[in-house]
Design a protein around this nucleic acid. Structure first.
Lengths: 345, 345
DNA sequence: ATGAAAGCGCTAACAA
DNA sequence: TTGTTAGCGCTTTCAT
């Protein structure tokens, strides 16, 4: 029999080393695939480790190596929308193939909270992180982010880092043109404020679409509000009084609120109002008629974010340049359905 | 000037101790609120640490203490449903107030993967975890879970641990009675297999409801399938050929698939078919008419899970008993809307 | 190719 | 009340 490890069920390198009559250094080397160990010995060590069910203590490993990709962070502002929670979960899935564990934190869109969380993540020696920044990122936060491989998601905070965003400008252009082609000239837009980087992008797309459609963007009924369902409901109610015949919504929660406001108002879709919503078509397909949706590729965003993060970690390790710090766009799709049709007047 | 810390931007206990002319032990004690340090000194140490922007290395701390609540795990099978991803995110939010970071992992409902993830979590010396077990939990997995404070979520795997579940039996009874009271006698049920603990619970509720309604559960059209949207669509299609006048769905993804199948079939709701779906009413409210929904309290589930986990951690620390290992139920609500009405024949 | 030994940054005995 | 000294379990020089 071999000696009992101190902590029940936990085998360590010293146990392996003792049992095999080699040094802990050799064990470590074998386990980490160092070439500096006789292949046959290495194999024997690995086999024994396996048989003993050895799993390295990630804490000790990371602490010792002082640089490891044991952990990465994922920082999101909200929990109740798939844009964040589903993307986070998908990212965790993808990262696990890299042997990396993902620590998830939620800021509530509060910059102070964000800083606190980030400090704690750094205290856990994360190798890098994906973040959807709050609206008012603090300077200190920015400084901390400067020291790590960072990937921004959905929102940009002005730091020098690669960011993964839905390519909304183009699809917004397309949405407006779609409606214009159907004959609409009174088109409204409900979106998020320009202070949110993605809000600005979407609005720009909308305006460009108006121009391309030969319509005046200045005269378009526009509402820009913080992205909550309630705000969407209220803003939509207000828009419905303006005589528009078509409405584009730029935001997932806003879309839910809008749909509810439209039903509540008794407005028939698409007879009285053509409607283009934004988000996960899985849900909007439930509406009757199914809603024409700007389908965001959440899985694609998660994949790209995971890839960029891993690239960043690799670069940090090898001293290379890392992924280009700018927008990495994932194309959404305009999914035409029954909620858009020619105006009926 | 104080000496430069080795690693840029990182102050350690030794730095603080040196600068203050005390020992690292005293610093550690002060920072951890030990009573065994002169209050005035403690305060001075804390103030200085604060001023230097000291944040303890969580890895070192956890490694040294050999028992800490630096990390907990959260293990889910799927990413694309709010039942998992939103609950996970909310839990992360709640745990952070406890100073605990949450590592999120996804199993893809694969028992092997689940075991691998769990091993890695243990390797990160997690203090405990919340898990939605896969359908075929491996023995080794069970053994590992036995060594930790565990809280089960949504699904039970037969281990001795507290679990947080939606109290679906009661609401299923209620759903059937609701339909029966409207005059339906041909009621169908589409749910998840009995192998899934929550599938069994729901089916039991449905059957009890049938009995209470004076209907024969044996003659009820029933389909039990793995919870995916596609399966829901297919099963619903099949159910629509059976002449039922009302349908209860027990599962979020199944509900989405069902709704789509019903629309595709051209069935009018509620004239041709009364429909009760399951999940987040936010989305089902979009349907026209809005769907009568079994509203699961995801936030409530997350809260309860976080509470139980923390209780478990506290108990482990203090040697107390810990939360009672059984079902902790969170009540869902039947939210009547426009998709249920008396049968029209 | 291998081993001895020095840490990684912290906490916790044990002394004083 | 405070300091000294071992570790926690691993990786990594530096010798050999």
């Amino acid at each position: 029999m071999t000696a009992q490890p101190r902590r029940a069920g936990s085998v360590g390198v010293v146990d392996l080393a003792r049992d095999l009559g080699v040094s802990t250094a050799t064990v470590s080397r074998a386990l980490n695939g160092s070439t500096a160990v006789r292949p046959e010995l290495a194999e024997r060590i690995r086999a024994y480790a396996e048989s003993r069910g050895y799993v390295a203590n990630r804490l000790a490993r990371a602490l010792s190596a002082n640089t490891s990709r044991a952990f990465v962070g994922f920082v999101i502002p909200y929990v109740d929308t798939p844009a964040y929670s589903a993307v986070a979960a998908e990212c965790a899935r993808l990262l696990s193939t890299d042997g990396t564990q993902m620590i998830l934190t939620v800021t509530g869109n509060d910059p102070e909270q964000e800083l606190r969380q980030l400090r704690e993540l750094v205290a856990s020696r994360i190798a890098g992180l994906v973040i959807s920044p709050t609206t008012g990122v603090l300077d200190e936060t920015r400084r901390l982010l400067g020291g790590l491989p960072v990937v921004e998601l959905h929102r940009a905070s002005g730091i020098e880092a690669p960011g993964v965003f839905s390519d909304d400008e183009q699809v917004m252009v397309e949405s407006v043109l779609h409606l214009a082609a159907l004959g609409h000239t009174s088109i409204g837009y409900l979106g998020t404020p320009e202070e949110l980087s993605n809000g600005a992008v979407r609005l720009r797309g909308i305006r460009r679409g108006m121009v391309l459609a030969g319509l005046d963007p200045e005269r378009m009924e526009t509402r820009l509000v913080e992205p909550t369902k309630e705000n969407g409901y209220a803003a939509a109610e207000s828009l419905l009084t303006t005589g528009i015949t078509a409405l584009v919504v730029g935001g997932g929660s806003l879309s839910v609120g809008t749909a509810q406001a439209v039903w509540a108002d008794g407005r028939r879709v698409p007879e009285d109002l053509s409607l283009v919503v934004y988000g996960d078509p899985q849900w909007f397909a439930l509406a009757n008629p199914p809603l024409t949706t700007i389908q965001v590729d959440y899985a694609g965003l998660a994949r790209r974010a995971a890839e960029l993060l891993i690239e960043g970690l690799d670069a940090r390790h090898s001293g290379a340049a890392g992924p280009s710090p700018g927008a990495h766009l994932v194309a959404p799709r305009l999914l035409p359905a029954g909620s858009t049709a020619p105006p009926q007047n």
